[in-house]
Design a protein around this nucleic acid. Structure first.
Length: 427
DNA sequence: TCTGGGGTCCTAGGACCC
DNA sequence: TCTGGGGTCCTAGGACCC
């Protein structure tokens, strides 16, 4: 028997989360904006119907938004992450094999559950998530991950399927007919660059790609796309990754709320980002062997002088100490900084990560210093966890932080901050 | 005026070695 | 005038994802 893999995906996830706690948004056109209120990163169906694309800069659709009374919200990641955890916990009860693929999607291995009737089983998941959390989801089921993604797409787009589509229930000819109606760009792994190149070869629909010669695809493109062709033919090449692999790099970067010219403010920003990245590093019990810093001006502002530079510095020994990492980052920043530019973004990347318990002692180790550093970081993390991030900062992070990003339309942290829980009034 | 952030994998090409 | 070939390692860049 072939595999049965389900992909469960929340509809318009960020918008749906906002609607759970603010029912007045129901039925209205709503968008959620990226950090800095820059781009549209989630759209309600009403907004999609107006032709607003994903990732469109907010300022470009201001007039349209006004005309149609579109509600725009800053993103509230604490809320979405918490709701995501709840969704994933509910779904995990439907199968022992779960891969959490992103904040709003997961794969479930439904092998062995066929006797329930997979479509019916999926409807149970849907209804439970709707009832317990108030969130709408769609489910796609097929014999490979790539096909399950497509089945999910069909479940979303075609009302006749009632939000659940099981390719396994199709006759072979019937499935091919359907795949012949879907553009190749919808395939997982075919993005905006590959789709036109495939089109030029006469491969325009999913069915065309499914029937393409794997050898030719590999030769013209890569092994990655060759695997996609196999997956479309129901040959699974991508396994379920139930345990998230350890990260190979950790990035913290932000656009500024306003252009920054001086080194002093860049130093504050870079140090803040380093502290954030170091915290993520410690949370996954890892050490970084190198740190990369970058800064850049606004690439969209073509008539302004442009500068974009980064530098990678190896660390004397792998570490997760915020202070040591900050020293490295600031040293790198000094090297790449050039006066006379209006910077709009900076970032820090921790690389060459190793598990903390695999640290190899070096000649220059100072055991007392190492113990002090570990202890200090533990205290710092504990206090910031208890009293909120930023309660204790490094001096260089700055108190004013004029460069901080804009986020003026944020909803309350309904589920993660006691002071901000929703209050129901009776009578 | 105003354009996100955080990841992964693969490939091509250069450096270097024998 | 003539100036190898093959392997490995590393990095930058391109493609993709949400």
């Amino acid at each position: 028997m072939s595999a049965s893999i389900a992909l469960i995906d929340c509809n318009n996830f960020y918008v749906s989360c906002e609607r759970v706690f603010n029912p007045r948004l129901e039925g209205r056109p709503v968008v959620v904006l990226s950090n800095n209120d820059g781009c549209v990163v989630a759209r309600s169906n009403e907004v999609r119907a107006l032709g607003v694309g994903m990732g469109v800069p907010w300022f470009q659709i201001r007039a349209l938004a006004e005309q149609h009374n579109i509600v725009a919200l800053s993103s509230n990641y604490a809320l979405y992450a918490d709701m995501s955890n709840r969704v994933m916990a509910i779904l995990s009860t439907f199968s022992p094999g779960q891969e959490v693929y992103s904040i709003d999607e997961c794969f479930l291995d439904l092998g062995g559950f066929e006797h329930f009737g997979l479509a019916r089983y999926a409807q149970t998941m849907r209804h439970r998530i709707r009832r317990l959390l108030g969130l709408p989801v769609c489910v796609g089921i097929a014999s490979s991950k790539t096909l399950a993604k497509l089945a999910n797409h069909v479940a979303k787009k075609r009302a006749a399927f009632d939000s659940v589509c099981d390719f396994g229930a199709f006759e072979p000819g019937e499935l091919d007919r359907l795949l012949g109606e879907i553009e190749v760009g919808e395939v997982w792994g075919v993005g905006r660059r590959l789709a036109p190149r495939l089109g030029a070869m006469g491969i325009r629909t999913v069915l065309d790609l499914k029937r393409a010669s794997p050898a030719r695809i590999r030769q013209r493109f890569s092994v990655v796309l060759e695997r996609t062709v196999a997956e479309l033919n129901g040959v699974p090449c991508l396994g379920l990754e139930e345990v998230a692999p350890a990260k190979q790099q950790i990035v913290s970067s932000r656009s500024f709320g306003m252009p920054v010219l001086g080194l002093a403010e860049l130093q504050q920003a870079v140090q803040s980002y380093t502290v954030r990245a170091a915290l993520k590093l410690r949370r996954q019990h890892a050490l970084a062997g190198a740190i990369h810093v970058f800064i850049r001006t606004n690439p969209f502002k073509q008539n302004a002088p442009q500068y974009s530079q980064g530098i990678t510095l190896p660390l004397a020994a792998p570490t997760s100490d915020s202070i040591t990492l900050s020293h490295g980052a600031l040293q790198g920043l000094k090297t790449i900084y050039r006066a006379g530019f209006a910077y709009t973004k900076a970032g820090v990347m921790l690389a060459e990560l190793i598990p903390a318990n695999r640290r190899v002692p070096t000649l220059f180790d100072d055991p007392a210093q190492l113990a002090r550093s570990t202890g200090l970081m533990q205290v710092l993390d504990r206090i910031n966890l208890a009293y909120g991030q930023g309660t204790i900062k490094l001096a260089g992070e700055g108190l004013e932080q004029h460069w901080r990003m804009k986020s003026g339309r944020k909803s309350p942290c309904y589920t993660t901050r006691l002071a901000e829980v929703a209050v129901a009034h009776a009578g």
